[in-house]
Design a protein around this nucleic acid. Structure first.
Lengths: 340, 340
DNA sequence: TTCCTTTTGCAAAACGTTTTGTATCTGGTG
DNA sequence: CACCAGATACAAAACGTTTTGCAAAAGGAA
């Protein structure tokens, strides 16, 4: 219940004026205050536990130092956590704080939530999706600095950051090829999203680069969940000329592939190697043996988005940029040489 | 770049005074304005897209309408997403917004982050953990309305919400018993945390209630991850008098039990039934067959915490309360009758 | 001493609201 | 017409800062 300590209290305690305190604390307009007094003021402020009221200073400078993060769902995967944390950490490093808001798929709710953010005078907004997709930025964001996270839009005047899907697939398939495989199958997603196309392209690129022939029957599609992966893998691994390695659209699909392999009596990686994408630790670490996979840089994307947004805010005018972040290979135990 | 529309603009457009606008919009101090004018003002405000500046109003009424949510890690499991969303939704329904901040295990960072929240004048904070544990509330929260989420502390003057661990285990084991099992094993956690003890207690309660004898050799402990569950289950299921059902500390442990069963050539649920706790969809849905498990009410806890916090803020003085939320059984396919 | 220069203080305005007290307007009633 | 009640307007203060212009103090150098 102790009434908050304000700048006047600090001034009184330090025996200087509020003007001096203000200058001492925000050393911006320097040289109105001598180094010694500045130190004194700071010490006193610390001792008193003074914390400037950001509503007041924000009101005065028309800067809230708050960023909005609007996302769709954040419940099913841990990806959201990583992105938010990346955004958070970056914001914190630069003296900002993040207001998170999520609206599921309800665009009316989204509108109202963005409105709330505006009322709180957020300095900018990160517009995030939980998986890489193409979006239309809501009209309410008009006039607010905005950066897209894990999403892109037609309007190239908005900066965005996404995973390098093609590169991720190339990384995975290169690793498979390096291990000696020549008959490689892919379990792709049936949905028409950027990840589907990008990863397919990367898969084909890697094969081509190494002069490996692509057998279209070994690129199958299915639902991007475990059940879909299981079915697809059962089909692929049941054939006599089965592939010796499987590149899977995601770790969940890879989990299905494990189940299929086990059901068929194939050992991993002795009889068949499996590589995924996502580095969904809760699955990749839990599979037996551990799943070799390519990590999606969620934390880094969150961080990148906020840094970009703050650059935009702090000195506007830079051209928008569409960035794709690298996806590193995480080796566990599911990739080995092909059976001889 | 259109300069924000303020209350004066609304007043001018509606042809009334700012006083009237303010009264019309916050109908609190009623009857200073006639219903007709109120409607007029509201229409004009909507047409102009007027959004009250919360920094200004907050400064004036010493109320930011912002809640802080400080948590530890939010990266590995999707639980964080559910809790945050629950908190979020509840806050939104009552006109508040949430600032999320997370500090890992770095308590110095936590201190500084709480400080930031204070600077932004949050009206209260939810102090959250990602798994049920006992915590010490940091001194910086002194004087701020606080509610604990998925955590408890010695000081019973702070309200808290946690899952009903004992009840969750009872629910799971009751279901197993209803299915006809009499030889039931438990794979518990080795860590000394509330969940470990609560779930053990619930397990024993259920057995006792049905007059089933508890064989201590069938309650084994291990690391609460998949590998730990696998090892523990291999031991338990390898014996001739193996249990016909396994109650697992968590879904990840249950996944290990699946692996062990598969390795031993046991079918689920024909040869052995398995029940978990967590309802970690990404795993429970992915296992084959689907995992019957008990859900931890993360969303509900987040929502409860915020509602409690706002009750505290809006009319202080109510006694603190320690709440435990129910955990419902989620049936999939891993529980069946015992082999005959 | 006198004149600078550097450091500090003081007062005031501004940010956009809410809230209060008082004054004004309107229309109806006696 | 005079009076009254209800509805509204107006002006001002307050919330806690930042920033400005100007004045005052403290030194040092001439």
């Amino acid at each position: 219940m102790t009434t908050r300590v304000g700048i006047r209290d600090v001034a009184k305690a330090a025996g200087v004026s509020v003007t001096t305190v203000s200058h001492a604390l925000n050393d911006a307009t320097s040289f109105r205050v001598k180094a010694a007094t500045q130190q004194l003021v700071r010490d006193v402020a610390r001792d008193l536990g003074y914390a400037p009221n950001k509503m007041a200073s924000g009101l005065r400078n028309q800067r809230s130092q708050i960023l909005g993060l609007v996302s769709d769902e954040i419940t099913t995967t841990p990806f959201a956590g990583a992105m938010i944390r990346g955004a958070q950490d970056a914001a914190y490093d630069r003296g900002y704080v993040v207001m998170v808001v999520n609206s599921g798929l309800d665009s009316e709710l989204e509108t109202r939530e963005i409105n709330m953010l505006r009322q709180h005078q957020v300095d900018g907004v990160v517009y995030a999706r939980m998986y890489h997709q193409s979006v239309q930025v809501p009209a309410e964001l008009e006039g607010l600095p905005t950066v897209l996270l894990d999403s892109v839009t037609r309007d190239s005047s908005i900066s965005s950051v996404t995973p390098d899907e093609v590169g991720a697939a190339e990384t995975a398939v290169e690793a498979i090829i390096q291990a000696g495989h020549t008959r490689i199958g892919m379990l792709n997603n049936i949905d028409d999203i950027p990840a589907t196309h990008g990863r397919r392209e990367g898969f084909l690129n890697a094969l081509r680069r190494h002069g490996l022939q692509h057998d279209p029957r070994q690129l199958v599609i299915g639902q991007p969940e475990t059940a879909g992966g299981r079915e697809a893998a059962l089909g692929l691994l049941g054939q006599p000329d089965r592939p010796t390695a499987l590149f899977c659209f995601s770790d969940r699909v890879a989990m299905g592939a494990y189940q299929a392999a086990t059901a068929l009596g194939l050992r991993i990686p002795e009889d068949v190697s499996i590589v995924g994408i996502d580095n969904l630790e809760i699955i990749a670490d839990a599979l037996w043996p551990g799943l070799t996979t390519v990590a999606l840089p969620h934390y880094e994307m969150g961080s990148w988005a906020v840094h970009r947004l703050l650059d935009d805010i702090e000195n506007p005018g830079a051209p928008a940029v569409q960035t794709q972040l690298d996806c590193p290979l995480i080796e566990r135990g599911s990739l080995g040489p092909p059976p001889s």
